[in-house]
């Protein structure tokens, strides 16, 4: 499969993502400079972590106007698979591809540590390799990960099972103590209603190989790869995890 990793000025996890995809999963991963206007030939797109445009104004606020974001929006509308990690998640929020916004961490600190997240929805193309309720240990590294959305959107997201990951204890209990940044409902990752765009604050690319002592993050990439392969097997329009992912095979 062909993965594109978008590189904004200030992205710094692009190479980690490409390493996981190419060296660990044996897939083709190419960097896509933010000035590109086409994503032709790609099966999935990843917006990596970092500090795009120095986080000026708000995290992701400037990056969302990069030329490539027009192509990312179109790619997403056509059912293409888009994963935003950390700053990539923040950019997807600012771009309106995912609902809500990020506030400064409750503690005001930049938090860089391993956290536990519970898989709230395992029937997504991003979590197909996880069990429902499975606890994953994945590191976070951010200052603005305090997810917020209004009551209306909160209930819409609940109804559509759009919350994919929530911060929890090692035992899988969702508690305030396990919430590192003050995020609403302990939300660590969400997807769009169609299920082809997901954003998550934890960094799966930093916990995807044994040599790093943790392979939990690899499940995300394996799930994506599996969903893409199944989509291709089933034809141009495929049902993956209860979600219609059209056009993936065409790309």
């Amino acid at each position: 499969m062909n993965f594109g990793v978008i590189v904004f000025p200030g992205s710094n996890c692009d190479h980690d993502c490409m390493h996981v995809l190419s060296d660990l999963l044996g897939q083709k991963a190419v960097p896509v400079w933010h000035k590109e206007s086409s994503l032709a030939g790609l099966d999935a797109v990843i917006l990596p972590g970092g500090f795009s445009y120095g986080d000026y104004l708000r995290t992701g606020a400037i990056a969302r106007f990069s030329p490539v974001m027009g192509a990312v929006k179109q790619f997403a509308q056509e059912g293409g698979m888009v994963l935003g990690i950390c700053n990539g998640f923040q950019i997807l929020l600012e771009a309106g591809l995912l609902p809500g916004a990020m506030l400064r961490n409750r503690s005001l600190s930049f938090i860089c540590k391993d956290v536990y997240v519970r898989v709230e929805n395992a029937a997504t193309p991003f979590t197909g390799f996880c069990k429902p309720g499975q606890v994953l240990k994945i590191p976070i590294a951010h200052a603005d990960g305090n997810y917020y959305t209004d009551e209306v959107m909160r209930s819409q997201m609940k109804a559509a099972a759009q919350v994919v990951f929530r911060y929890c204890t090692a035992e899988g209990e969702v508690t305030q103590e396990a919430n590192p940044n003050g995020s609403l409902d302990n939300i660590a990752g969400i997807m769009n209603p169609a299920g082809n765009v997901m954003g998550m604050m934890p960094h799966p690319e930093r916990s995807a190989e044994d040599v790093l002592g943790n392979e939990d993050g690899k499940l995300i990439f394996l799930s994506m790869l599996d969903a893409l392969k199944k989509a291709v097997e089933r034809g141009v329009s495929a049902l993956v995890g209860g979600v219609t992912i059209e056009n993936i095979a065409r790309r």
């Binding site: 506030l103 409750r106 503690s107 005001l108």
Partner: peptide
Amino acid sequence: TLKPGILDPQGKAI
């Protein structure tokens, strides 16, 4: 500014 009712951690620290 942040809307009323939205947690402002920086404001609280100040």
